[in-house]
Design a protein around this nucleic acid. Structure first.
Lengths: 194, 194
DNA sequence: ATCATGTGTTGATAATTATCAAGAATATTT
DNA sequence: AAATATTCTTGATAATTATCAACACATGAT
C-alpha cells in the first residue's frame, strides 16, 4: 500500500522514516471500479488523488452535453479539481476511472497539517506543481502551433500508455476534436509512413 | 523599488523584516524598453521575472515564422521559460516587452539559497504555482469547450487590461486564431448586443 | 455461442476558420 | 503637420473540421 506514492515522493525530497510514518497517517486508500465517479461537478473536491494503480480522467460537460477531457492521470500522477480543492467552491469537473484503480487520497486540512509538521512536503508539492505546470504549458504550445498530425504523434511519443489504454474517442476529446477527425488524422499519418 | 513584489509576497506568506531584507539581496532590478527581448529562444533562461510595472509576452515561433503567444504577464505576474529555468536547457520561448517595463529578476541559484534560508518562501512559490496552474487549466477548458465568442468575452471579463493594453493581433495569437477571425468574432459579439 | 452495445472508419455535406487581398483607420516617425 | 508604417476590417475563396449517417469490427452481457 502506498508504494508508488512514497517512491515518487522520496525521489523528489528526503524524508526520514518517522516523517514518512507521520504522513502515512493522513492518507486514505481508495479503490474505484472502471467508470465509477471520484468527483461529480457541483460537489466540493475534498481530496486530491494520487494514482497508485489505474487510470482516471477529469472532464467538463458543456450545455450540449458534450464531454471535454481536461486531464488524464495514470500511475504516479495526481488528479483533482484544483480550484474546488483549494477554495471549497463547487467543482467544475467530473473525475472518473477508466480502469479499476487504486488511489491515495489526501484532503486539504490533512495536507495543511502535513505541511506544518513536515516542511519538506512543501518542496515536494512545489516540484510536483512545477512538473504539472511545464506539462500544461507544453500542451498549450502544441495546441497553438502544431498541426493535428504533429500533435497526435507528439502525444504518442510523450505518453505511449495513453494511446494504448485510452479509447480513441477520449483521445479525440482530449485533443479537442471529434472522433471522426482523429480517425482521419491517424489515416493521414499512416499513409505518410507507407 | 520592489514594492509590488513584496506586497504580493506578504499577502500570501508572513515574513519578518529581516527575512524580507535577506530576500532583497538576491533580487536584481531590470528595466526593459518596449519590444526589447528579455529572453531569446535557444538561450538558457537564467531568470524568472516578476513584473513590477509594464507588460510582457512569451511566444514560440513555428517553422513558418508564425508567432504563437503562450502567455502574457502584467503587473504582479511572473514570467519565464520554466523548463529552461529549471533544467538549464535551451529555451523554447522568446520573451519581450509590450511596453516599457520594470522587472524583478531572480535566478535559480538565488532562489535555492532563499529557499534554504527562508522556508516560508517555499509556501509562497507553491501558492503562486497553484494560481498559475488553475489559470492554465481554465484556459485549456475554455479552449476545448467554449465557442470563440464565449472565449473572447471570458477573456475580456477575466483580464480587462489585456484587451485595453494589447494589440488585437496578439490577442488573436494568444487565442490561436488569425486576426481576421478575431475581428469577425468581435463583430458577431457587437451585433448580438445591439 | 449468441445477441446487444459500443467503438472506429468512411463518405458526403455543412459549417467554420485560414488565406489572400484591398481599403479604412490608427499609430508612429520625420 | 505630413508622410509612412502598422493595425483592423471586410470580402472572396480555399482549406479544414464538424455533423450526419451507415457499415465493419470489437467488446460486453447473457
Amino acid at each position: 500500500m502506498y508504494e508508488l506514492f512514497f517512491k515518487n515522493m522520496t525521489e523528489k525530497v528526503k524524508l526520514t522514516r518517522d516523517q514518512q510514518q507521520m504522513i502515512r497517517q493522513y492518507l486514505v486508500p481508495k479503490k474505484i471500479r472502471k467508470n465509477q465517479y471520484l468527483l461529480q461537478e457541483g460537489d466540493v473536491a475534498k481530496y486530491a488523488a494520487f494514482v497508485e494503480k489505474g487510470a482516471l480522467r477529469a472532464y467538463s460537460v458543456d450545455e450540449k452535453g458534450t464531454e471535454h477531457i481536461i486531464q488524464f492521470a495514470f500511475e504516479g500522477w495526481t488528479i483533482s479539481d484544483m480550484y474546488s480543492y483549494m477554495t471549497g467552491e463547487p467543482a467544475t469537473y467530473n473525475i472518473d476511472a477508466l480502469e479499476d484503480s487504486e488511489l491515495v487520497l489526501l484532503n486539504k486540512s490533512a495536507q495543511e497539517e502535513i505541511l506544518q509538521r513536515v516542511p519538506e512536503y512543501e518542496e515536494y508539492i512545489r516540484l510536483q506543481l512545477t512538473g504539472a505546470f511545464m506539462s500544461m504549458q507544453k500542451r498549450i504550445t502544441s495546441m497553438l502551433s502544431l498541426t493535428l498530425e504533429e500533435r497526435y504523434i507528439q502525444l504518442t511519443q510523450l505518453y505511449p500508455s495513453l494511446v494504448q489504454r485510452v479509447p480513441q474517442r477520449m483521445i479525440a476529446s482530449y485533443m479537442g476534436l471529434t472522433p471522426e477527425t482523429l480517425s482521419r488524422v491517424r489515416r493521414k499519418i499512416k499513409e505518410r509512413w507507407e
